[in-house]
Design a protein around this nucleic acid. Structure first.
Lengths: 130, 130
DNA sequence: GCAATCCTTCCTTCGACTGGAAGGTGCTCG
DNA sequence: CGAGCACCTTCCAGTCGAAGGAAGGATTGC
């Protein structure tokens, strides 16, 4: 199939697919006219990539995962390792954001939100330390 | 005080402070030799900025907040509005990440993590839809 | 014969800095 | 008085990730 069709099927923009080829994540065949020619395996890979990206894996993570995906002799421990690392990164990020949320929602709750200029949010921002 | 001192006191790199001046967030005086000259008010503003950035407010948010900060006739509702918007963005991000975390941790828990090549993580990534 | 789809290449975007080079200033030591 | 050094200035370029867009041309399908 051509890039348009696989784009539709994988849900990835054609531009992104070309980009993934560029950076070596996939290597589709070419037909005589120079058009990229994708097979079922490519569809799997692109679905894989779309899914992994949606889960927040970086392109470099994806590169690792793809290599493992293609390696029949891989150890599942290796895959698990990448996934766990990413999981940790996600959990850290969540904690950071939760901390921000707490501070912010506290600030918001202390602010009258009326027409007066007096605002605890600004007051806090101007003085508080981390 | 010079940029070095206020950098130390505000915790922001000198480079960043110059950048903030560049984009119009602050407008420090200049002494005769051309050096930037910062006062207590500038320290407040930079502390404000450092704090707001640490809470994840974008530079554009900061611009809005600074304008409100400087406007004695502001309504606290306006500040609250900006903060609430940001709070919503944070909460959305948290939800996304939590969803990722759940999927990932489920995947991780299903993977043996041994020397065999069989890996549910890869299997899922290659087939699952969003 | 013409629109849709494909190709390539190069440039641009976003956000928020960060680095580095080249050169002026100011303080101290001898 | 001069050397040396820290500190300051400006300006230009680059970073990161992940594409997006426009230009200009070839091919295919109806």
């Amino acid at each position: 199939m051509n890039i348009g069709e696989i784009s539709e099927r994988s849900g990835l923009p054609a531009k992104t697919i070309r980009y993934y080829e560029d950076i070596g994540l996939i290597t589709p065949d070419r037909s005589e006219n120079g058009y990229r020619l994708f097979g079922a395996q490519d569809l799997h890979k692109l679905t894989f990539l779309a899914r992994a990206r949606a889960l927040g894996f970086s392109i470099e993570d994806c590169r690792t995962l793809m290599a493992l995906y293609e390696d029949d002799t891989r150890a599942s421990a290796d895959v698990k390792h990448v996934a766990i690392q990413h999981l940790h990164r996600i959990e850290e990020k969540i904690e950071q954001l939760q901390s921000m949320r707490q501070t912010l929602s506290h600030l918001v709750s202390t602010c009258a939100g009326d027409n007066r200029p007096d605002c605890p949010i600004l007051k806090d921002l101007a003085t508080a330390k981390l």
